[in-house]
Amino acid sequence: MLVAVGCARHKGEVPEISDIFDRVARRRRRDRAQPDYAGFDFIRAAMLDGIAERLDTVKRDFTDMLDLGCFDTSFAPAGARVARVDAGLAFARAAGGVQADEDRLPFADASFDCVISAGVLDQVNDLPGALTLARRVLRPDGLFLGALVGGGSLPTLRAAFRAVEGERPAARLHPQIDVRSAGDLLVRAGFALPVADVETIEVDYGSLGTMLDDLRGMAATNLLRARSPLTRGTLGAAAASFAAAADVDGRTHERIDIVFLTGWAPDASQPQPAKRGSATSSLAQALGGARDSRS
């Protein structure tokens, strides 16, 4: 997914210079989360529901599908063969898939007619590269559907740490991608007919500790290479700030924006934009006609 509180980097790690996220920490945390993940999958479940709704609007059948960042086998459309890949060995093994990072896919070009990805794209070091690879493994006119936690999410958690650490807090939350940037990334990756839209869900928490338990359970804690240890004092002060935002029932509201991505692998059969200069009348003529009709 995307967020939150972290610990020190693993010793002995040799990251790539361009990496934002700690690949080793990500694999280890996914492996730790795998045994109990079913109890913490509510955000990904909402993403998969949205993906299923979008699939239902497409009037064609998909037979060879890729679940990119699979977590488990909960994505299982009837009549389709689903290959699964996950950055964590435990998730990949339990799902009968392969272990690989999303920006290092092991599949040949044009292997699938549909690729879906729910809940992992905001933890990928090379997101433009990962989207480009997703487009390349699609056959012509193949469909990509993705979902990720987007910009504006977790405002209460952000405010709690900002209140404790000031306007320049330690790197505790991941960079977030808003819906407009998501659409631009689809275009950059070479998708045709790109669409990005957002849906919001709200979750109530009795304490910051409960929220952090959820984030650990869904393998969504801080994976930034530049993360710093969280002291007990900082955590306690952030918990108090989080609790101060609670309603009269003692529940603190948190918002999560889910950005959905839709794109198609280019194909000659798809609708094409009109060629520049092909219009038969000008905008000035149209506006002039409109002014005449109102006079």
Rank of each mutant, 00 (worst) to 15 (best):
V3D: 07
V3T: 12
R9E: 04
E13Y: 14
E16G: 15
F21H: 04
F21V: 03
R23V: 01
R26S: 12
R29C: 01
Q34P: 01
F40M: 02
D41I: 03
F42T: 09
I43A: 04
M47P: 01
E53R: 15
L55W: 10
L55Q: 14
K59F: 09
L68P: 09
F71K: 09
F71E: 02
F75L: 04
F75H: 06
V98R: 14
Q99S: 14
Q99F: 05
E102K: 00
R104T: 08
A108N: 10
V120R: 10
V120G: 02
N125E: 04
G129E: 11
R139W: 01
P140W: 00
A147S: 15
G151W: 08
T156I: 07
A171C: 06
L173K: 02
L173G: 02
V179H: 02
L186S: 09
A189H: 09
A189Q: 12
G190Y: 01
F191N: 04
A196M: 10
Y205N: 02
L212R: 02
L215Q: 12
L215T: 05
M218N: 07
N222W: 03
L223D: 05
T231L: 13
T231N: 08
R232V: 14
L235N: 02
S241H: 13
A245R: 15
A246P: 07
A246S: 14
H253Q: 15
R255F: 03
I256F: 12
I256P: 01
V259F: 02
L261I: 05
L261C: 10
Q270S: 00
A279G: 11
L283Q: 08
L283G: 03
